[in-house]
């Protein structure tokens, strides 16, 4: 299972980015091995269709879960279609702290089957 988190920097100690489509990086964590991969978001500086295109990138990287702040219309549709579960993270904090809250079951499932 691969889980993705939009981030402001390249490491898990950097803060979670509050903008899904425009976050400069996406950190992908393999939940079995704990290995992390950092993707730089090629659409971060663009203005159109960034959400859906980033979802496609997640799909291509075998991501099945996402921790993110609130997500808008088109990206949401894409996530639903791609079958990616989204867990809501509204506070501020580092990627690693968001992951811990996720593992502790403290994040609410926003998109996906209960």
């Amino acid at each position: 299972m691969q889980i993705a988190i939009p981030a402001s920097g390249q490491t898990i100690n950097d803060p979670v980015d509050t903008r899904f489509g425009r976050a400069p990086y996406v950190i992908i964590v393999n939940q079995e091995s704990g290995a992390t991969t950092t993707l730089s978001n090629p659409y971060a500086a663009e203005s159109g269709g960034v959400g859906p295109r980033l979802v496609q990138l997640l799909v291509q990287n075998q991501v099945t879960q996402l921790i993110a702040p609130r997500i808008g219309g088109n990206a949401e549709n894409a996530l639903v279609a791609a079958g990616i579960e989204v867990f809501l993270f509204e506070g501020s904090g580092s990627v690693s702290s968001a992951l811990e809250q996720f593992k502790a079951g403290k994040l609410v499932l926003m998109i996906g089957k209960q």
């Binding site: 509050t18 203005s47 159109g48 609130r70 808008g72 219309g73």
Partner: peptide, 12 residues
Amino acid sequence: LMVHDIRKRARE
């Protein structure tokens, strides 16, 4: 796009 952005900010 702008409407989308305004609504997003309204939520935040």
